[in-house]
């Protein structure tokens, strides 16, 4: 049996009350330790896809397996532990009064308590380089700090797979570089939704392009980004002067 951290086959989804399917049969398999970039224009179905990965949208058609668990109601709790989702707007992710409580929220829901919880929170924050922020309020943090803490809030649940939605949005260049260092140093399998193609190239050896609810390309990031016709066809653009074959 397959024990890939994530395996998706023939995933289809239509939002209630709409005629067009948002996802028209997605197949993706991610191997342990891989970092995969998920690219695609706005409205391509990336977010809908990501919402499926920890059961925030109900499975209509197709199959998702996380490790050895099929996506179904009885496995939802364990799947949500294994798949750590970091949302695009860190203010949605950081909803508790302090950084400490936010990082503790996930493991506490899993039943971790007392000194063990305290230790876990401190360790996780140290790991993302945010140990000093533990007693701060989330709304006092800078963009880069918020992003780190947001990642810590799911790392504290010891996930197997990290799913990050636009992690570089709103970061200044230094914050972006620090984020790259952080993600590159994490052992977890990662799936990163992004519009930032140089970022994808730098951190993800493999990329998947989703367009119109289908996977239109899946391969080494460097090759995909060198295919100018493919990029143009799916409204993907490299920054001016950026040459992926020469990085």
């Amino acid at each position: 049996m397959s024990c890939a951290p994530l395996s998706v086959s023939q995933l289809r989804f239509t939002y209630p009350g709409e005629h067009h399917a948002a996802l028209e049969g997605i197949d993706i398999e991610v191997a342990a330790g891989e970092r995969v970039a998920l690219l695609g224009p706005n409205g391509s179905g990336k977010t809908t896809f990501v919402m499926h990965l920890n059961g925030l949208l109900e499975l209509q058609d197709g199959a998702i397996t996380v490790g050895d668990l099929a996506m179904q109601e009885s496995n939802l709790r364990e799947i949500r532990r294994r798949v750590g989702a970091v949302f695009q707007d860190a203010d949605d992710q950081l909803f508790m009064p302090t950084v400490r409580d936010d990082v503790a929220f996930g493991p506490a829901n899993l039943g971790v308590t007392g000194d063990e919880l305290d230790r876990l929170v401190v360790e996780t924050l140290e790991r993302v380089g945010a140990g000093a922020l533990i007693d701060r309020s989330p709304h006092h943090l800078s963009g880069g700090e918020k992003r780190r803490v947001a990642i810590a809030t799911v790392l504290s649940m010891s996930p197997h797979l990290l799913v990050l939605d636009e992690p570089t949005s709103g970061l200044d260049p230094a914050g972006r570089r620090e984020l790259i260092d952080l993600l590159a140093g994490l052992p977890q399998t990662q799936m990163i939704v992004t519009h930032d193609l140089p970022f994808a190239l730098q951190i993800c050896p493999r990329s998947v392009i989703i367009s119109g609810g289908r996977v239109v390309a899946d391969g080494p990031t460097r090759e995909l980004l060198a295919d100018t016709a493919l990029l143009a066809q799916h409204r993907l653009e490299l920054p001016f002067g950026f040459d992926p074959t020469r990085v």
Binding site: M51, N54, L56, R77, R80, R81, V83, G84, A85, F87, D89, D92, Q93, F95, F105, G106, N109, L110, T153, V154, M157
Partner: peptide, 11 residues
């Protein structure tokens, strides 16, 4: 969205 972020973390 916050509610979804909570669900995603086992709420």
């Amino acid at each position: 969205r916050v509610h979804q972020a909570m669900l995603a973390r086992g709420y």
